[in-house]
Amino acid sequence: MKYSLLLNNQRVEVEAPGDISLLKLLREYLHLTGTKEGCDVGECGACSVLLDGKLVNSCMVLAAQAADREVITIEGVCLPDGSPNDLQQAFIRYGAVQCGFCTPGMILAGEALLADNPQPTRTEIREAIAGNLCRCTGYQQIVDAIEQTSLSRKEKKGHA
């Protein structure tokens, strides 16, 4: 079938089978490989994307369900010039990245949280990333990175 979606703020059209997951559509037909497959059963969160602004596991969404809707993947998080945004920079600075396989999903989970709740507590941050497994970091530096981004965004807003 022919899919049309608003992907990372661009209208895209692609021909692909009608019975595949959004994850497969993104990776194999749209060549956006930043979205990772870790379990294919909705348990690890490595394939997290934003669907109409909501965090979802793209392995648990049929591509057909995403048709004509807005999808943001990790490739759509950076600044227009391709450089990392503030949350991505915080992930680098606070050591939130080790093997990096969970990182795209974690960053999207962080963005989804901060859009919803700009001043989360550490517990709220932990809850917001609870569907994103990480085997390397023990999560602490990821929580640090999200917390620091929330603080710096607040400060920026205050100055604006």
Binding site: G45, L55, V56, N57, M60, A128, G131
Partner: peptide, 9 residues
């Protein structure tokens, strides 16, 4: 139920 991703869908 689950985590954010599952509760959103």
């Amino acid at each position: 139920v689950g985590a954010v991703q599952i509760r959103n869908m």
